[in-house]
Simulated assay, not measured.
Amino acid sequence: MYFDLDDILADSQKFTGSFEVDVHNVGCLINSKESAKISKTDKLELPFWLVTSLSHIFLSEDRSLFSVERPEYLSKLATNFFKASPLNADLSVVSHFYRIVEKWCDFIDQPELVDTVFDMLVARAGRINDLSFNASEMHSRENVEFLQTLDSFEKDLFQISSESYNDSRNWMKSVIH
């Protein structure tokens, strides 16, 4: 069986939430004695894989055991910024941004967020492609600052694109000579 390291890292991203009822004997979730009680008013930061599991346990038809808060980097304010200025978004603060968004939108259906992030990726991929093709422009302050905002997927995209352009240039040189 194959496990994708990026999926594992995305699933381990912490999300804030709380239980809908007081829960006993789960102190290990808050680094306490196992017999400790977690009150429904306590905010917890748990890995995404655990948040999704706890959220799929229902106390009634419309009430789950655990409710999760939307992370700040996916808030309405952040998504409005992504729409207005996709090239200025600093995705490096969440290294597996696109994987986490994908998992979040699988977990909580949010088609508008999917569209916004997709449009942002298209805009940023165009800039990444331009920079990988024009290595001489890569070292300007503006371009260096942009490259520092890339998440892990975008860094891989930049690397692959740069290598592809170099390989095609080398091939063209070998064909011409």
Rank of each mutant, 00 (worst) to 15 (best):
92 S>K: 10
164 S>D: 13
52 T>P: 00
24 H>K: 13
4 D>A: 09
59 L>T: 05
119 D>L: 11
123 A>T: 07
42 D>A: 13
114 V>D: 09
128 I>M: 02
86 P>M: 05
4 D>W: 06
146 F>T: 02
15 F>C: 04
74 L>T: 05
12 S>Y: 12
170 N>D: 14
100 I>S: 01
111 P>R: 05
111 P>C: 08
95 S>W: 02
102 E>Y: 08
137 E>N: 07
145 E>N: 07
124 R>Q: 02
15 F>V: 04
176 I>M: 08
150 L>E: 01
43 K>F: 00
173 K>I: 14
51 V>D: 00
111 P>M: 09
145 E>M: 06
30 I>G: 07
140 S>P: 01
3 F>Y: 15
175 V>D: 00
147 L>H: 02
3 F>E: 12
47 P>F: 05
148 Q>I: 03
17 G>T: 14
165 Y>W: 11
28 C>M: 14
127 R>M: 06
31 N>T: 10
145 E>I: 05
144 V>Q: 10
19 F>I: 11
102 E>G: 10
99 R>K: 13
129 N>K: 05
58 F>N: 01
87 L>K: 15
29 L>V: 12
49 W>T: 02
145 E>H: 03
91 L>N: 01
116 T>I: 15
38 I>K: 09
175 V>K: 03
71 P>A: 08
173 K>C: 06
18 S>F: 09
169 R>Y: 10
95 S>Q: 10
93 V>Q: 11
167 D>K: 14
140 S>R: 07
15 F>Q: 04
73 Y>T: 05
57 I>G: 02
105 C>D: 08
45 E>K: 15
174 S>N: 07
158 F>N: 03
3 F>C: 09
26 V>I: 15
52 T>N: 09
56 H>I: 00
99 R>T: 03
84 A>E: 15
65 L>A: 03
54 L>G: 00
114 V>G: 03
95 S>A: 08
27 G>Y: 11
37 K>A: 12
67 S>T: 14
131 L>C: 04
73 Y>G: 07
93 V>H: 07
81 F>D: 13
150 L>S: 04
61 E>A: 08
134 N>A: 02
97 F>P: 02
13 Q>G: 04
102 E>P: 00
68 V>G: 00
98 Y>Q: 11
64 S>R: 08
1 M>P: 07
99 R>F: 06
101 V>Q: 02
75 S>C: 07
152 S>Y: 03
162 S>C: 04
143 N>A: 08
95 S>H: 10
105 C>T: 15
169 R>E: 10
79 T>N: 04
155 K>H: 05
99 R>G: 05
171 W>G: 06
95 S>C: 06
162 S>V: 04
34 E>S: 12
72 E>G: 12
5 L>E: 08
62 D>H: 06
26 V>S: 11
147 L>M: 14
111 P>D: 10
41 T>E: 13
141 R>N: 11
